[in-house]
Each structure stands twice: as structure tokens, then as C-alpha cells.
Design a protein around this nucleic acid. Structure first.
Lengths: 235, 235
DNA sequence: AAAATGTGCAAACATTGTTCGCGTTTTGGC
DNA sequence: GCCAAAACGCGAACAATGTTTGCACATTTT
């Protein structure tokens, strides 16, 4: 099965992938040209169709890769943050921002205005990547949520990974987490997307500081005591 | 000055504007075709260039109109909400969501992934529309901020419009408001954009309820007593 | 060895945004 | 009222795009 043909194919596929990402970074998703990608990959435009289903297929590839890379970045940051629940949640927020600012075109492609024709199929690679992307964030919020509700802090957090069951087959979360997760994600995403898309130009705010404030605020509302109880907005 | 030519021109310009909006609604910004717009407006593609500077000009027109319309929608909602500061801020959040859900393509165009070539010139119609868009939101947050800091509630709110000076020439806000405004806007925008772009599909959350919770949370952090002090996240 | 399958490409087509030159219509000053 | 000047709208043309098709060539399978 590991024939000569297959290896060449995999090699060229990676070249295409790299070329597409390059072109995306350079010109943005809206102006992404299939012909340019083909040229950069050293292949003819029509030849590209043996590897990818047209321009939409190219975008699907980039979207899937984008989620994957985004998720990995967050995961690494969370892992590096140690065991403290607060630190982990802060790591989510700050790495979310960092990745978005470092990869604005990818960020816009995967979480910005949806591309017109594109709709991720439930079995496609995109949905899998999305799950992988969401997982570290969900885990962090879930941990914080459980650790917060048990009034005693401390060792409870250790076992929480099992206490928050994410249905391994459907990927569904317990209903009780939905609103916490949505609000938490939205607060981070709101700040980051506004900044990344250039809508905070009117101020020289320290967005990292705001993100930390939002994390503290969420934790406070979740009932954590080890955070200043009512985080007054500084003015 | 009110010659026959000018009136015909204005008339055709409106037709173009309407046709462009129509096409935007139908196909989205990325797939917006200048030729289709021309056809719908009953004009030749090249003739369109007498009215609008190519495809980018068409987009600039749509962006400017989008901010204008968005701002008007929020303003009307706030005006209809009466004098209560809390009600006004809630009106901002809920009308923000409503407009986005009703006009997803326009929303994506003006606040989603930036269009590659486009950069609003400081003197262009877009920046003016953006200011007009931001104004009601800024006003509402500013009122809430001032009303919250003065411990006594009540009649203080009446005169606050003058207490919060928005520099009429530069449009600049007092620094003290920046972080409140950014956090408030971001919380609303985060939830709304995630929902509008289809990223909350995994849950059947009542987004309006979450928005109300966010508004209450902001007010609480601003020091309002007439709101349940620590709005615990319901789980 | 022969048949079957996979691979890459050039040519062609429809559609896109944009420019250019040409008649026609309206305007504004005499 | 007339005439130069400006504005207008259009068809033709051009480069560039995404996509399809038929055809040689290479590789794998029988």
C-alpha cells in the first residue's frame, strides 16, 4: 500500500497545502486564486482537481487546517499553564488572542464571515477539526465551573476531567455547561475578533488586560472565592 | 442646480444602491457581481463606473449604508426603551442581535472578515457612518457608567448626556470610558457574531437571555445597586 | 504481458472586473 | 436661440478567473 505512487501523492498534497496557506496569508481568502496556488505548487490548474475539489475544496482544506492549528495553539498554552484553574483559563484567552493576531487571515476564514457556498458536511474533516479546536477551551471552562461550584477549592479540581462528561460519540456537552461556555467564549471572541478585524483602532487599550479582567469576571460569577469578589471595572 | 440631469442621476444612483443591496442579500459580499448589479439596475457594466468606482466602490457604498442602517436600528430601539438606563442598555444588546440576524450578509460585510483591498479613508462616507453607528451605543454605555458611579441612583441620569463629553470635532471619547465600552461592546458583539455566523449551532441557548445576563453583569460591575449584586451564572 | 487504474496537462469555455473610444444628450455662457 | 463643453451611457475589447474535457503517459494490478 505504501507504493511509490502514494508517497509522491502525499508529498505533492503537502506542497499544495503549503502553497494554499501561503497564498491565503498573502492575499486573504476572498482573493485566493486557484491558479496561483497551482503555479506555486508547480502543477497545472486542472491538475489541482486531482487533489482538491476546486476552489471550495481548497477553502475546506484551509478551514480544516485552520481549526486544527488554532486548537493546537490553545492546547499547548493551556498545558504550559500548569494546574491552576485560573491560570489555565487565562491561558486560553491570551493564546486565543495571540493566534488570531498572528494569523488574521486564517482567523477570518474560520470564524469570520462565512464563505458563501461553503457548508461543512457532518462527516467532513472540518467538523472533526472543529471538535478538536473546541476541546481544550471546553475543558478549561468545565474545570473552572466544577471547581467553582464546590465551595472548597483545592484538590477537587484534579478529578474534574472525569466529572464533566463530554459524550465521546456525539460530542455533546451536558446542558448545564452551555451558557457558561457560550458566555465565556463569546467574551473572549468578542474582544479578539473586534481587535483582529481592526475595530478597536479608536483606543489604545491593553486588550490582554481586558481579557484577564473578563476571565476574572467569569470566574467570580462562577463562584470562585480566590478572585476579587466583585471585579469593579476600573475607570 | 436642481437640473433635470441631477435628478435623473440621483434616481439612478438609488436604483444602483437598491440593486447592490439586493444582490448582497442574495449572494453575499464575496460573490457580489458588478455585472449582475448593473443588469439589475438596468445599466451597462461600464456605465456603472460613472456612478461608482468599480467593485470596491460598490462595496464601500454597501459598507457605509450598512453602518448607517445598523446605527439607526439601535438608535430607534434605545429611544423606544424609555429613560431607564438598564432598559436602554438592554435595548442596545437586543437590537444589535436582531439587526444582525435580520441582515446577516450586511453584518458580515461591515463587522466580519475585512474585505482584502478595502481600507476606509478618513474622509470617506464610511468613517462618518461608523461614527453614527457607534454613537447610540456609546451614549448608552456612558449613561450607565455615570449613573452607576454616582451611588445615588434616580434623577442623576437625566443630565448625564452632557456629563459625558464626546469631542464633537475629533469624535474622541474620554479615556476613562474606553475599557468599559470595549468590554461591553465585545460581550454583545461576541455572542451576536458567533450566533450569526453559525457557531452556536451545538446548543439551543436562548441568546437573548444571555445578552440580558451580560448587560446585568456589566451594570453590576459598574456599581449599579438596582441589579442583583452578584449575578451568578445559572447552571 | 496485458488490462485497468491513476495522473498530469493543454485546450477550450463561460464569466468576471476594468479600460477605451465613440456617439448622444444635457448644460451653461454668449 | 446657439454652440462649445461637459457629462453620460454603451459596445467592444482585454486580461484573469474557475471549471470541464479528452488525451497521452505512468503506475499498479491481474
Amino acid at each position: 500500500m505504501g507504493g511509490r505512487r502514494a508517497s509522491l501523492r502525499a508529498q505533492l498534497f503537502d506542497k499544495i497545502r503549503a502553497a494554499a496557506l501561503d497564498e491565503l496569508r498573502r492575499t486573504g481568502a476572498a482573493a485566493l486564486s486557484l491558479r496561483e496556488v497551482a503555479k506555486a505548487a508547480g502543477i497545472s490548474p486542472s491538475g489541482l482537481y486531482r487533489y482538491v475539489d476546486g476552489r471550495d475544496g481548497l477553502l475546506e482544506l484551509l478551514i480544516s487546517d485552520g481549526f486544527e492549528s488554532f486548537g493546537r495553539a490553545i492546547e499547548e498554552a493551556v498545558d504550559a499553564a500548569g494546574d491552576d484553574v485560573i491560570a489555565r483559563l487565562e491561558a486560553v484567552a491570551l493564546s486565543y488572542r495571540r493566534w488570531a493576531l498572528d494569523n488574521p487571515e486564517q482567523f477570518g476564514l474560520i470564524l469570520g464571515t462565512p464563505v458563501p457556498g461553503f457548508q461543512a458536511r457532518a462527516d467532513g474533516p472540518t467538523t472533526a477539526s472543529v471538535r478538536r479546536f473546541a476541546e481544550p477551551m471546553v475543558r478549561a471552562v468545565a474545570d473552572a465551573s466544577v471547581a467553582g461550584s464546590s465551595a472548597s477549592s483545592g484538590e477537587a479540581a484534579v478529578a474534574t476531567a472525569d466529572l464533566v462528561p463530554i459524550d465521546p460519540v456525539t460530542g455533546a456537552l451536558p446542558e448545564s455547561l452551555h451558557s457558561v461556555l457560550a458566555r465565556g467564549w463569546a467574551r473572549i471572541h468578542g474582544l479578539v475578533s473586534l481587535e483582529t478585524f481592526g475595530h478597536l483602532f479608536w483606543s489604545s487599550i491593553d486588550v490582554d488586560a481586558l481579557l484577564r479582567a473578563e476571565v476574572r469576571s467569569i470566574l467570580a460569577e462562577l463562584g470562585h472565592q480566590d478572585v476579587e469578589p466583585t471585579a469593579r471595572i476600573s475607570r
